[in-house]
Design a binder for these strands. Sequence first.
DNA 1: ACCTGTCTACTGACTTGTCAGTAGAGCGCC
DNA 2: GGCGCTCTACTGACAAGTCAGTAGACAGGT
Lengths: 208, 208
Amino acid sequence: MEASISQTVPATSRERILEVALAEFAACGYEGARLQDIARAAGLSHPTLLYHFESKEGLYAAVIAAATADWAAETRRAISGNRQGFEQIASLVEAAFHFFETHANFVRVLRREAIEGGERLGAASADVLAPFVAEGVSFLERETAAGRLRPHDPLELMALCYAAVFTHFSDAAFRSRVLGDDPLTPAALRRSRDALLALLRAALDPGG
Amino acid sequence: MEASISQTVPATSRERILEVALAEFAACGYEGARLQDIARAAGLSHPTLLYHFESKEGLYAAVIAAATADWAAETRRAISGNRQGFEQIASLVEAAFHFFETHANFVRVLRREAIEGGERLGAASADVLAPFVAEGVSFLERETAAGRLRPHDPLELMALCYAAVFTHFSDAAFRSRVLGDDPLTPAALRRSRDALLALLRAALDPGG
DNA sequence: ACCTGTCTACTGACTTGTCAGTAGAGCGCC
DNA sequence: GGCGCTCTACTGACAAGTCAGTAGACAGGT
């Protein structure tokens, strides 16, 4: 599974299918998405889609794999700076907002999986995420011990950040409906991100 | 739509259907849920289900209505104390954890709706929620002006609390898969709730 | 000649919703 | 107390439609 989700108009049928399939799975869920609709949106008949992807499940797996590859790359970049204390947290939160801004549909797919327990993602995804979480916990414990962060339950802190960022993107349409604003404009994203950072800084940063 | 979701074994077919339908819609989503499966779980044939509820959409609406009635009652109770400052926030967070503990399946249904923009909920739900949010914002502004809370973006603060509580319940199965613990045990709920309250207190309570 | 990408036409499985009919409880009435 | 009538709750069988996936033909490039 190689292809990543491009930002420009995709050249090949395979790339076009991946892009519209992500949007369709995000909007309708796995069960609700129709191969015929995805194919039509990509300008193809649905048997042609099945020529490129062996089955609906195969297409879904390819969509997940493509977006996951992008995510892994972006996360590696955000922690490569080897920052300390609150600065590292801020850097990760900013990276998350930036990544999901360009992959909002992927968040909705992930959220659906999370609701269902992630069975469709396969055991692999849990095995990928667990070490990432463990590393985060040990970072928080280390920085707290060094006095660069005020003490807080590390696991719950990470869960809260995950919840805040994911919800902002996955529930954007709902928030827009209830509040009347669009949470995905650059200004709204900045506002939400800064509010989260301000709250975290007030609670965690010894110098804040 | 009168019936509420009971905690004990439901006596009537209608109540049994509502209960297993909530579980099925939570687990599979609206599209993924099968009337036949719901009926079988309730010990009936599927035409009998359609005898009690005119259609799949009608059943879904009835499920939402029953749970929403419970939610409204619990929320009214939590704000009836007329508390001030951080105490009122803590009271609401505690009430939310308590309510969703007994209605975890309802959270998953709501989250699915949020992902899809809540179109199936009808305009009514937005009209119910908007005043609730407005009241929360004006409470936060009033208490901040009175010096009982440290200043923070009110809307984003509410969004963050919503995100934290909803995610804890809607993504419980996923968290359990990644971390190996069960987030819905009383101890885990207390831990998560207290972590959220500690963070909020550190950021908002002038005396904390 | 063969491979790639595409199409039209089709099938089988499955789902919602309908229909006609059954079992049994309740009720007035002679 | 037996009879006719109605109502609720329920069922099996079926109609209508949808969906994923298959078969086979066809066009264009190498």
